[in-house]
Design a protein around this nucleic acid. Structure first.
Ligand SMILES: [Mn+2]
Ligand SMILES: [Mn+2]
Ligand SMILES: [Zn+2]
Ligand SMILES: [Zn+2]
Lengths: 140, 140
DNA sequence: AATGAATTTTAGAATAATTCTAAACGGATA
DNA sequence: TATCCGTTTAGAATTATTCTAAAATTCATT
């Protein structure tokens, strides 16, 4: 395949990958551009694959899985599980919560400070709290 | 206090199924006995199937799936999704939260009043809050 | 630019969880 | 007991994800 474009448009995605210690391959650059071009997004592997294909990016589904996991390991994404058999990847890696539209399966960010938790139980002995996830399930 | 089951907690497996409008078949009775014999439990289809087989209950995995879904539809269980590719069924159907031990995949109940949420965002237009799930992820 | 080592991508096979199919079975009722 | 119809079942099918190993690409070194 051809070498990566050096256009300024790529700078953000390229820098992001470099900073994360990930080789900026053609596929990773294309996915990073899609993921980080605009605001916060919540994608599934399949939805991202479809979107990339729609933009005529040539890659395989396995590469999408690899990239999503690599990005997550390097802190570029956060993985979210809400429903069995479907995993989401969130471009917003800062602490926040979610609305979950049960009807459509869509996720929407909820700002951290709009959910005030004023007490939490102590973590069991030998364990520490890694994260508190609040999912606000919506129905009509 | 010697008279039988005034509360669903005390109901026999048979009574429980009858009240739920489910035919008390051999398989459902055996599963209900395992599930509701003691306190709160969090099972996976596979773990329940293995446990039943260990007690020499003759049934198929498909029946375990059917029963778990039937029980859930009739309010005897609640389904919980924490991790993609693994679903849990909870015998505690009252409102409560969970500790999730990431290392082992085990769930543990967290009493509703030990998590105090003093503010929540308004539901988006046309939607209402169906449930708020709090998952406290634990790591060493 | 060419070389070579390490990393990444890929197609397709493999695995895992769950659902489907349709035939056999068995509770409920009369 | 006879009949009805919901339930169970084995095995196939489906879906999501991971694995395999060969080919391609990146990148450091000449
Ligand atoms: Mn994963
Ligand atoms: Mn289900
Ligand atoms: Zn988010
Ligand atoms: Zn519980």
């Amino acid at each position: 395949m051809s070498s990566p474009s050096a256009h300024p448009k790529d700078a953000t995605a390229l820098e992001r990958l470099r900073k994360a210690g990930l080789r900026p391959t053609r596929q990773r650059l294309a996915l990073a551009k899609i993921l980080f071009a605009n605001g916060s997004r919540h994608v599934t592997p399949e939805s991202l694959y479809t979107e990339a294909k729609g933009k005529r990016v040539n890659l395989s589904l396995a590469t999408v899985y690899n990239a999503l996991h690599d990005f997550t390991e390097r802190g570029l994404l956060r993985e979210i599980s809400i429903e069995a058999g479907r995993s989401y990847f969130d471009t917003n890696t800062s602490e926040h919560h979610h609305f979950y539209y049960e009807r459509t399966g869509k996720l929407q960010d909820v700002a951290l400070d709009s959910v005030r938790i004023t007490s939490l139980p102590d973590a069991p002995a030998g364990e520490k709290v890694k994260r508190v996830d609040v999912i606000i399930r919506l129905a009509r």
